[in-house]
Design a protein around this nucleic acid. Sequence first.
DNA 1: TTGTTTACCGAACATTCGGTCAGTTGACAA
DNA 2: TTGTCAACTGACCGAATGTTCGGTAAACAA
Lengths: 201, 201
Amino acid sequence: MASPNAVRRRRRGHDPESVLSIAVGVFNERGYDGTSMEDLARALGVTKSAIYYHVPGKEQLLARALDRALDGLLELVADERAAPGPAVDRLERVVRRSVRILVDRLPYVTLLLRVRGNSATEQAALERRREFDRFISRLVTEAAAEGGIRADVDPALVTRLLFGAVTSIAEWYQPARGASADDLADALLKITFTGLRTRAA
Amino acid sequence: MASPNAVRRRRRGHDPESVLSIAVGVFNERGYDGTSMEDLARALGVTKSAIYYHVPGKEQLLARALDRALDGLLELVADERAAPGPAVDRLERVVRRSVRILVDRLPYVTLLLRVRGNSATEQAALERRREFDRFISRLVTEAAAEGGIRADVDPALVTRLLFGAVTSIAEWYQPARGASADDLADALLKITFTGLRTRAA
DNA sequence: TTGTTTACCGAACATTCGGTCAGTTGACAA
DNA sequence: TTGTCAACTGACCGAATGTTCGGTAAACAA
């Protein structure tokens, strides 16, 4: 008979979740290809072989991490796809939410942003990521067509540079000390939407 | 016709320079750690061992490539360090020149931007790179102190987001088709200095 | 108590890695 | 015709890689 009780006394040790989160940390420090199972074992405080008790292997670890990032980003796309209102305003909201996801799932998104397509797993992730990129690209184009953003810059360039600033957050943001996701989004939107330079005299 | 070469006489061959430029291309495609000497050999059309005739090894290839990027960036720092004029204007010029260097030395700078410090070579490169970062950081702080850029955003955040947009260029720019370095710099400066949003006027 | 399950270790596996080295090839000079 | 030499090949090395497997101690269940 199945005991429906989920909460039982935990024996100390790892589970697939803790292995994943520690592994992703190491992947981001040394790069996925630069990380050996020995490195992971050291970070986990166990032997290499113990890792295989919890997870099927190195590449599965990658796949699970990338899914976490992609699920968040594509949920955003699904939400906003049929949203009403001027495209500029939707773009602003999408930037805000993207920053939020980036910060909430920082290590997973960081890993995603560094994927180069070296394996089937990585290629599949890149394919899903392209869906996000296409959505953003369309949104910026729409905002330009509506006259919501300046017309003297190619929308394709706007997309890349704007989200270049967003994704750069993964390279330097430290959640512990420093700004919150909202602070970040505020700063980013002020700079890119209103401009840095002080006006008039 | 009458070309007598039944057997191809291809005694041309590689030199350290061509090996480096092809190698850096592969490094950027697959990542440095994800690239084996066998991969390089295939891209060069020779055997693995032939590579060692031209260059001392894999890590030296990395070191030379990173130096190319860093030499360009630190030359810029040396030039601008004692430049006169308002800090905003100097910042604008530094962004412009940074984009120029990024485009001119695209593969080398791309490689530099992905270094994570896994070896002594990489750590040395990161150390030199920090000098560039510190210079930019000081310049932005100065511009803020002079009132040249808006005061309601932390200068440290401005630095990161502004140069996040700049360095993102390495992730998507394709020299063949598309904008020139000046086009890129124009677009980037318009967005970040003047702002994207159209103003009711 | 005994048996089962959980979480791990240590040794070994096949493969790939960066790198070495003795020898071969073809273009060219004399 | 012979010799030189830059440019390369192919066989090989030890170390490191991701993964498998037999075994085991401790916690838990009976």
